[in-house]
Design a protein around this nucleic acid. Structure first.
Length: 308
DNA sequence: ATTTAGACCTGTCAGC
DNA sequence: TGCTGACAGGTCTAAA
C-alpha cells in the first residue's frame, strides 16, 4: 500500500513520538507477519529493547533498537501503524467464541475514554502489538496480511535489505546510474520504475505520476529513452515523491497516519486513478490500462508512444 | 533470459 | 437483499 512518501511520513511522525521508548511486551496475532526470526524468538528477542531511532530505506520502515538490533517493517498493500495512548485494553475473547473471525479481524481494542472511540475502527485487523513501557501501544494493522516484519542484528543490515537500489531523494540517485540501469533493460519503462533495484521506493502511484511529469508513455522501452527524457524522468521521480511527502502521503481508502488520519496527496495527483477525467495540461481524457500487471494511468496526448 | 500468471489475503463497490 | 466479479498502495515464485 504505502510507497516512499507514505513510509517517510510515518517515519517522521514516529521519530518524534517513540524514540526513547522501551518495548515491554510483544503480541503476535498473525504469526506469518513475522518473517524473521521465528515469531517466538522474535518476541523473546525484542522485549526489553529501547527504540533508539527511526529510519526509512525504500519502502522499509526501520526502527533502531538498543543492543545493536533493528526492526524492519514492510507494509506491502494494506499494512499500517497506529500509536495508542495509555489505557487501551486488549480483548481476545473472540478467539474462543469465533476463531475464524478472530484470525481475520484480530483482537478487539477497547478505548479508555469515549473520545478515543473514534480510533476504534483503525484498531481492527491488528497483527502485531508492542506494549511500550510508558503504557502506550504501537499497533501494526494489516487487513490483507501481506506485510512483513523482521528483527535483525545491525551487522546484517546489508543482507536484510539486499537488492535495494539508490534512495531517490539522496545524492546516490545520479543521472549516470539511472541512465545505465535503463540502458540495460528492454522492458517497458513502467515496469522498470516498479523494480526496487533500479530506484528504491517508487510504487504504482508515483510511477504513473513521474511518467506524466516527464511526458513519457508507460509502454516505452526503458532502453529507448534519450538523455533528456531520462533527465526529465529522474526529475519527475524526485519531484512527485517530494510532493507526496509534503502532503502527508496519498490515501484513498485505508491508508492512515499514526493517529488514524488520512493523508491528502490524493488531491494533488495528476493521473493516478483519474481515468475519464480531463488531463490538467491538455484536457484530453486520462486513460487507464493494465501494464506490467498493474493498473496504469496516463494522458494519451501528453505521453506519446513515439516510434522507436 | 525474460516475461507472465499465480499466490498470498481481505474489503469494498458496481452491477445484476 | 444477496450474490458475483473486478479491483486495491507490493513482492515473491513457478511456469511458459
Amino acid at each position: 500500500m504505502p510507497e516512499l512518501p507514505e513510509v517517510e511520513y510515518t517515519a517522521r511522525q514516529l521519530r518524534a513520538l517513540i524514540v526513547g521508548a522501551a518495548i515491554q511486551e510483544a503480541h503476535v496475532f498473525w504469526t506469518r507477519t513475522i518473517g524473521y526470526p521465528d515469531w517466538h524468538d522474535f518476541c523473546a528477542e525484542i522485549v526489553g529493547r529501547r527504540i533508539e531511532g527511526v529510519r526509512r530505506r525504500g519502502k522499509f520502515l526501520l526502527l533502531d533498537l538498543s543492543g545493536d538490533f533493528f526492526l524492519s517493517i514492510h507494509r506491502r498493500m494494506s499494512g499500517n501503524l497506529l500509536l495508542l495512548s495509555p489505557g487501551w485494553q486488549i480483548d481476545t475473547s473472540l478467539r474462543e467464541t469465533d476463531n475464524a473471525a478472530w484470525q481475520t479481524r484480530g483482537p478487539t481494542f477497547l478505548p479508555p475514554t469515549a473520545t478515543d472511540v473514534a480510533y476504534s475502527r483503525e484498531t481492527s485487523h491488528c497483527r502485531v502489538c508492542f506494549d511500550l513501557a510508558d503504557g502506550r501501544r504501537l499497533l501494526y494493522t494489516d487487513p490483507r496480511k501481506f506485510g512483513r516484519m523482521e528483527l535483525w542484528p545491525c551487522f546484517s543490515e546489508a543482507e536484510a535489505l539486499h537488492g535495494l537500489g539508490p534512495e531517490p531523494l539522496e545524492d546516490a540517485f545520479t543521472v549516470e546510474h539511472f541512465a545505465e540501469e535503463l540502458a540495460k533493460r528492454k522492458t517497458v519503462i513502467k515496469q522498470v520504475l516498479l523494480d526496487q533495484s533500479v530506484v528504491a521506493g517508487v510504487g504504482n502511484i508515483y510511477a504513473d505520476e513521474a511518467l506524466f511529469y516527464a511526458h513519457i508513455h508507460p509502454l516505452r522501452r526503458a532502453n529507448s529513452l534519450n538523455a533528456s527524457e531520462i533527465d526529465a524522468l529522474r526529475e519527475g521521480i524526485i519531484s512527485v515523491l517530494a510532493l507526496g511527502i509534503e502532503h502527508g502521503g496519498t490515501s484513498f481508502s485505508d491508508y492512515r497516519d499514526l493517529a488514524g488520519k488520512a493523508g491528502n496527496n490524493f488531491d494533488h495527483v495528476r493521473v493516478f486513478q483519474q481515468d475519464g477525467k480531463p488531463c490538467v495540461r491538455c484536457g484530453t481524457l486520462i486513460e487507464r490500462r493494465v501494464i506490467a500487471q498493474r493498473s496504469t494511468h496516463f494522458c494519451p496526448t501528453c505521453q506519446q508512444l513515439i516510434a522507436e
